[in-house]
Design a protein around this nucleic acid. Structure first.
Length: 574
RNA sequence: GCGCCUGUAGCUCAGUUGGAUAGAGCAACGGUUUUCUAAACCGUGGGUCAGGAGUUCGAAUCUCUUCAGGCGCGCCA
């Protein structure tokens, strides 16, 4: 029905208005046809006449009269009303209305293959230096949800985790493990910039070494260290690297493997699976001229870089950045940006139409820089889209849960999952726009009470399952199709709500806003609970009952499909 | 100082490519169960959409400005 009505509106714009071409195309773009939010405004409603009056100075209500004549001639349209300043409200015949429901219940998405894209989403990408915490969980839930939504819209989606395994942070981890492994320091004198979490001890224990490796000159290693914490840790790393060149790679690689695996395990428990784990180290070394990172830097250096103060600078200001950026340091090492530059080149060269980077919002200052980098390499910056995810504040019984990464004392994602389950966690993570602060009360998420919106939604699904089972137990079989009965409208509001499903998914996908699904689920659950309380389905007249069961099947499917899009499993019973 | 984001009911937030009387959950108060799961439903109260100005048929939404809060501004990652 939507397609037919939409076509009719466009025909009306093209043929009946006599507008100039530019006005016509503007009007085509600006007018809306959408499901009415309440049935007294019809089933469908359009603002076409209002928009047209703004563009071409015509009287909207006069125009509406003309449009009404056109629309009323369409098969399935019962009548048309002109309301307010010039809205056109379209009322369908009950037959046509229910026909739409049959269409939606089968949930066959209409995919326009010409609009299909190859999309890559990179998310989480936490440094492999410790367990994922609750902040990472939000990025994981978000990235996975938009991946699911975009695939359901027909796009080809690839999920990728970028592992920063080449930088200083992993050296610090290796150093921390080394110090613990050989008990080089006590807790008191453990470097302040090292990783102090207890997981470091677990990793140290897990790494098995030959017996002859135990001769560590502990005092030698730890004496005369600089006072500055950063210099201290760097000095320690340098000493270990040069004095224990046999042990160092084993410890470092062992730690990296351990942490990476534990991150994978946590994500699996959270039901987030990546298609691709991309290791920064695979970009190669700057010292190797044939490495990807060297080639990428070389490409940029030819036209858009210069030397100053012994370093190589990218002329990023030419591409909209606030200042130029160092890509090769005075000492010849690359910066973080140089690796990211090569990584983005790699991604774009893989042939994606769009790459989406999901970043913590504290990286927003980095966006211009990376956009400039992409343009400097000769790509279109619009191929990349950055989605920022704000950190989540955890509350328990109204009090903020303290998190301190430095001391290694923090609430991990795994703890959260163990506490409230992956589904409730995902639900709450997605319950607000990603780029805004989220206050997440674990106390509420944990309770199985009416405060808990997650269970409110699940309960709707479970209740429908329950009614269906009761009905089947009585010997009935679920109807496969609506019967058109005059005068039966008890389910109309519920059906109208369910018909919104494809539009909600489309909007959630286009705007990369999975929270729209959460709010839709809430509305749907509310509509159902309302209906359920005022209607006794099992005692209804036979024909009415069949339609009610059909409508509930529709709602159940839509709830289940919506949940699937955010990675939540619908409960059959509670 | 510069840049980005935010300010909507007591609380947590939807609604922001301009649309019909500004919504939901929680909290408060009052009701609903011999009947399919009361983890539910119904009702009541609660708002100068931070303040001001502008744009137009029409603004929470767009523009300007003031105030308040958050974040970012490294040869860190």
């Amino acid at each position: 029905m939507f397609t037919q009505l939409s076509l009719a509106l466009n025909n009306f714009i093209d043929n009946d208005l006599g507008h100039a071409a530019d006005q016509t195309s503007l009007l085509r773009k600006k007018h809306k046809l959408h499901l009415a939010d309440s049935l007294d405004k019809g089933h469908w409603t359009t603002n076409l006449c209002l928009v047209a009056s703004g563009i071409a100075k015509v009287n909207p209500r006069e125009l509406a009269v003309k449009l009404a004549v056109v629309l009323e001639a369409i098969d399935g349209v019962d009548r048309v009303e002109i309301a307010g300043p010039g809205f056109v409200n379209i009322f369908l015949t009950q037959d046509a209305f229910l026909q739409q429901a049959e269409h939606t219940i089968n949930l066959a998405p209409e995919i326009n293959s010409s609009l299909q894209e190859k999309i890559q989403i990179e998310f989480v990408s936490a440094n492999p230096t410790g367990p994922l915490h609750v902040g990472h969980g939000r990025g994981a839930a978000y990235g996975d949800a938009i991946a699911r939504i975009l695939s359901s819209l027909g796009h080809q989606v690839e999920k990728e985790y970028y592992v920063n395994d080449a930088g200083r942070q992993v050296d610090i981890l290796g150093c921390s493990i080394f110090l613990r492994k050989f008990s080089c320091t006590d807790d008191e004198s453990f470097p302040a910039s090292g990783y102090q979490g207890s997981y470091v001890l677990e990793i140290a224990d897990s790494i098995k070494l030959d017996e002859n490796a135990q001769h560590i000159q502990k005092e030698e290693l730890c004496k005369n260290l600089p006072d500055d914490p950063e210099a201290e840790i760097d000095e320690l790393i340098a000493r270990i690297q040069s004095n224990y060149s046999d042990l160092w790679p084993i410890i470092r690689a062992g730690g990296l493997a351990y942490v990476t695996q534990s991150i994978k395990n946590d994500l699996t428990e959270f039901k987030v699976e990546f298609d691709q784990w991309f290791f920064e180290s695979s970009l190669g070394e700057l010292s190797n001229e044939m490495s990807d990172i060297s080639k990428a830097l070389h490409q940029v250096k030819q036209n858009h870089a210069y030397e100053k103060d012994g370093a190589v600078w990218l002329e990023s200001t030419k591409f909209g950045d606030d200042k130029d950026r160092v890509i090769i340091r005075e000492d010849g090492r690359g910066t973080y940006l140089s690796a990211d530059l090569a990584y983005h080149k790699n991604k774009l060269d893989r042939g994606f139409d769009t790459i989406i980077n999901v970043w913590g919002s504290d990286h927003h200052g980095y966006i211009k820089r990376i956009e400039a980098t992409i343009e400097a390499m000769g790509y279109n910056k619009n191929q990349m889209q950055v989605q920022l995810v704000q950190f989540a504040n955890l509350f328990e019984d109204g009090a903020k849960v303290k998190m301190s990464t430095r001391s290694g004392n923090f609430y991990t994602l795994k703890q959260l999952i163990d506490d409230i389950g992956p589904d409730a966690a995902r639900f709450y993570y997605l319950s607000k726009q990603a780029d805004q602060h989220l206050d997440f009360d674990i106390g509420i998420a944990r309770t199985h009470s009416k405060d808990n919106l997650y269970y409110y939604v699940q309960y709707a699904h479970a209740r429908i399952c329950s009614v269906q089972n009761k009905y089947l137990a009585l010997g009935g079989s679920l109807p496969k199709v609506f019967n058109s009965i005059d005068g039966f409208h008890a389910c109309d509001p519920l059906i109208q709500l369910a018909l919104n499903f494809p539009f909600v998914v489309k909007s959630a996908g286009e705007n990369l806003q999975p929270h729209l699904i959460i709010y839709y689920l809430r509305d749907l659950a509310q509509g159902f609970h309302h209906f359920y309380n005022e209607t006794n389905i099992l005692k209804a007249e036979e024909q009415d009952q069949a339609n009610m069961l059909r409508a509930l099947d529709l709602v159940k499917n839509v709830i289940a499909s919506s949940m699937e899009l955010i990675g939540i499993e619908p409960l059959q019973e509670m």
